[in-house]
Write a protein that binds this DNA or RNA. Structure first.
Lengths: 338, 338
DNA sequence: TTGTAAGCGTTATCAT
DNA sequence: ATGATAACGCTTACAA
């Protein structure tokens, strides 16, 4: 491996000077600059970031931990993250934890050992263990699509409660009154409970009853989850005319179930998704869905993180806007039919 | 930051000894071991991988470069990769290059500067520039879903030619004779040309004519690509009864176009995809598709890479099996109808 | 403008 | 079994 030392020899100068010109500092003549650059070029020298990191105590690397969320969401987040890390010359180490505590702890520990400059903690429940560790290692962290009441760690999120509220409200505005919910896990304080509460709140605000039998709880926001919950839900409640599924994958699972059950979407039942991932376009009929600005969430999270790394310690909380994307899976209910 | 030095002080021993017990070497008594471990524990010491890397010249990190391919493919690859990096205690740095040469070169250079132990180069055309650089830096590389004739760098792939051949052959076995192709970019030597050639070869082998007007070329394997190509193709060739699209995204775009054109799938036209990503399940009708073992491809690639990193220099070429996954978008043609 | 030398936090080689 | 100490490849005072 070519080192700065060899460059110095060839350029007949000292390593200090080589370091200076290579880092665009000052304190050398134009002449030596040329000599050094030439020598470096000829030797094909490339600096060793490891050695530099030892001294400057910065790695220009951040870590991102993902649980086991939808492929499309992960992808969008990562793209948004990459957009800005690229511009800021940061590298990103990604770890999938599958929401397993041991994997998460190992991932966090590894990131710390490798001395990443910051961490983006994505979409997962923040346990005390995680929080304690994050506080102990004391490096900048931002939560993406999650948060913790117990800490002051900044986050970037959508307001899940408000988003679910708006989704259900949209269904209500389309004259639906018997609205089913395919929910997340009711123990999930991040993407589970707030969306359930949003659903209930929208119903209440419209003077509609909240009927527990209209709610089905899923586990992992998956296609199969949505599919089997939908079957259950509709079989036991034939009077439902619209269902809100709290992820696009679940919603498309519901659509597939409907096809198999011979139910016309949106003719007989309207279905609304959540996320606005690519799936909502691919589904047939295309999904009307509650859009999260996934990519932007990723990029905002790194922007915030980099600010913190650079020393601006003001801890913000970024709540991004959501919106309803109208496609074909929701139809205004024809009251005369019922 | 707590260093080994502070641990040594607290344990009243030398840094050398601390290093020894922390690394499970030998050369210390049980007694000192206990002392050291206790001190480390109390101080909350965590080793500094940067410093270690300086000496051992290993970072236990690999780099993965992705162009701008389908979200699902990226996700599956990454998952496969993570599965084995996790077990082998490697971290992975990912970079998206969007197939832009400058971004690719920068990504490669950064990976080298950070002294990754190996690189997985994914799905992109391998230019001379890339190859020269990879050879120059001389670290283990494996190509994933791509390869280069000009180098001996090992790869893991599916045989695209044979896969496309089998896909079209499947259509032929279902009595289709007028088979359209929604192809990739004809300049793409990796996922473009081989699949086109596979299509043609299957036709020829069956004694069917290769008609250029049955072929439409896309750019990026995307949904919209598939959608507009399908419209074109069918409008100009109403006699086509089956089309093979070289990606699931394209195939689902084709299905959506068909819905809009009032064409029944597979009643009037059969559609076959390629990849077997999640999309093929979500599409309606669910896509019959040519499956690549995406996740396995990812994990095999790292396995190979890690072998190379560990010093086993035997350079393999891994060609993984593909298969046809039958779902609902292909139907046996009823000859009497035509 | 330039060079010497002291680190950075480890591992590894020597003595002891 | 243990401890000095020399690396590793750089950046950065401090001198000159």
């Amino acid at each position: 491996m070519i080192t700065i030392r060899e460059v110095a020899e060839r350029a007949q100068t000292s390593i200090a000077t080589v370091s200076r010109v290579l880092n665009n500092l000052d304190g050398y003549s134009e002449q030596t600059k040329v000599k050094v650059l030439k020598a470096a070029e000829e030797l094909g020298y490339e600096s060793n970031a490891i050695a530099r990191s030892m001294i400057i105590k910065k790695t220009n690397t951040i870590g991102v931990v993902f649980p086991n969320i939808s492929s499309m969401i992960t992808y969008e987040f990562l793209n948004g993250i990459e957009d800005v890390t690229y511009k800021n010359d940061f590298s990103v180490i990604v770890s999938y934890t599958y929401s397993q505590p041991e994997r998460m702890m190992k991932a966090l520990r590894t990131l710390y050992e490798k001395r990443v400059d910051g961490i983006i903690f994505t979409s997962d429940e923040v346990t005390d263990d995680y929080l304690n560790y994050l506080e102990k290692i004391d490096i900048p962290v931002v939560f993406l699509s999650t948060k913790s009441e117990k800490s002051t760690i900044p986050y970037v999120k959508v307001n899940d409660f408000a988003a679910a509220f708006d989704a259900v409200d949209y269904l209500i505005k389309n004259e639906h009154t018997n609205i089913g919910l395919i929910a997340g896990n009711p123990d999930d304080t991040i993407a589970g409970i707030p969306r359930i509460e949003g659903y209930k709140a929208a119903l209440k605000k419209a003077g509609l009853p909240v009927r527990e039998e209209f709610i089905r709880y899923g586990y992992d926001f998956s296609f199969n989850d949505g599919k089997s919950r939908f079957e259950d839900l509709i079989n036991e409640n034939p009077d439902i005319t619209a269902v809100f599924a709290v992820s696009d994958e679940m919603a498309s699972g519901a659509i597939t179930a409907a096809h198999q059950m011979g139910i016309d979407i949106p003719g007989q039942i309207s279905i609304m998704g959540y996320d606005n991932t690519m799936i909502s376009e691919v589904a047939y009929p295309a999904l009307t869905t509650l859009a999260q600005p996934l990519r932007k969430m990723g990029s905002e999270a790194v922007k915030l993180l980099i600010k913190m790394i650079k020393g601006d310690q003001f801890k913000e909380e970024v709540v991004l806007d959501h919106s309803v994307i109208e496609r074909q899976s929701v139809k205004k209910r024809n009251k005369s039919e019922s």
